[in-house]
Nucleic acid binder design. Structure first.
Lengths: 226, 226
DNA sequence: GCAAAAGTGTTTAAGATACACCCATGT
DNA sequence: ACATGGGTGTATCTTAAACACTTTTGC
């Protein structure tokens, strides 16, 4: 890192906030009030303040826009094409967050205003800046992580049934999974613990499970080489 | 992304440049001439210029410091702790590069000066700033990628023997691999093509192989869930 | 002819996949 | 009693892992 003065590049964070609502994977979008791209939808974001770390900035934006705290948040990628903002050079560090719907304030779950809303993550409206690229990348990363880690629990409430968990996976991966294989695999992975409670709405009550926090299941990707 | 002016955060790129020399995984380090950390070793880096993308900045640093072009380069992570540079707020986008030794100019392969050198990646000297964290993270990512992609070829010359390839993997992963299993797996993956040439130095000549560029082998990680 | 690295198959174990019926409850 | 989602086991196939000897060349 040579010595020189910086060249006045602005630095922001943008946060792709995912949740499950109505059996669909949703992403939180904010309508832009100012040019450029006024009236278009965009990812929540903000400038990094001088005294906060990048993750602190992302958590701040996450809280300001969704009200959620203590949720899963991961740095995604840094986007820095010189023309990505027509006004000035802006480099953005993108994060993605997974929030279970029950941790969202009610007015965020179903926003009344037309200035903010949960959009189907796979069918977003046209987005400002390069936010469509950022969202596409976040979706790819989410699918990828889902396949080899236990991160899917972050989108469910504290306790959940196995069917709810499976449905969450199916929703995000957009494919059907076999019930018996799913249950066997998720149970033998040792990342869940039974509770004594059952969820009884409608028909046969289903056992509720809880994610075991101590289980670090980064799992075992299949090696390409021996 | 709300409207506001940026707060004068400097933006740099740092590049972790790996190569294989003397059957060891090496990383290129530069000795710092100025405070802070004058005299200590650091990763090559530089400020992002107003008109260049992040990757262009990384390739520029890569070329300036190693002379290498057209090599594997991937964005690693963005480090932005407020105190990581004692002078001012500096956020750095870290990249890592894989360079085969034969693509390095001779004076870079064996630098005469004491201002620059190839250090064992797993036993680096004390590093300036948070560069030890960056290097550790790059090593982790390299090992990880090696296990499920074909990226290891990037560290070898245009053609190579299977033993050379296996040795490269063993060097980076720091574990022994079974010769028969390794060969079967790498050959059945369809990412290599035979050449008609043999490498004959010493004993029985070994067939030379070439990486098939068209083979996109991001491979098939084993799913945690069905 | 011998030292040194190249090259080659098989057996066993583990894990993935495909598949169909009974159970407990609310109405 | 029936409709609905909850819950369970097995057989087969694919893939990973362990393992030792023959071949070809240079000296």
């Amino acid at each position: 890192m040579p010595e020189a003065f910086d060249q006045h590049i602005a630095l922001t964070v943008d946060v792709v906030i995912f949740t499950l609502l109505d059996d669909e994977l949703k992403v939180l979008l904010i309508r832009r009030r100012h040019e450029p791209f006024a009236g278009m939808w965009a990812l929540p974001g903000g400038f990094v303040q001088p005294d906060e770390s990048l993750e602190e900035a992302a958590r701040r934006v996450l809280y300001e826009e969704s009200g959620a705290t203590d949720v899963y948040l991961e740095q995604l990628y840094t986007f820095g094409h010189p023309e990505r903002d027509p006004r000035q050079r802006v480099v953005t560090v993108a994060y993605f967050a997974l929030v279970s719907a029950d941790r969202l304030p009610l007015d965020v779950q179903s926003p009344r205003s037309t200035e903010r809303g949960w959009w189907p993550a796979y069918e977003p409206p046209p987005l400002a800046f390069d936010h469509a690229d950022i969202l596409a990348y976040a979706l790819q990363r989410l699918r990828y992580k889902l396949e080899y880690t236990a991160v899917g629990f972050q989108l469910l409430p504290e306790t959940f049934t196995l069917t709810e968990l499976q449905t969450a996976y199916e929703t995000i991966l957009r494919e059907q999974l076999d019930k018996r294989n799913f249950r066997r695999k998720v149970l033998s992975a040792g990342i869940l613990e039974e509770t004594d409670e059952f969820k009884s709405g409608g028909h046969r009550p289903a056992r509720l499970y809880r994610f075991r926090r101590e289980a670090t299941v980064e799992s075992t990707a299949r090696r390409l080489f021996p």
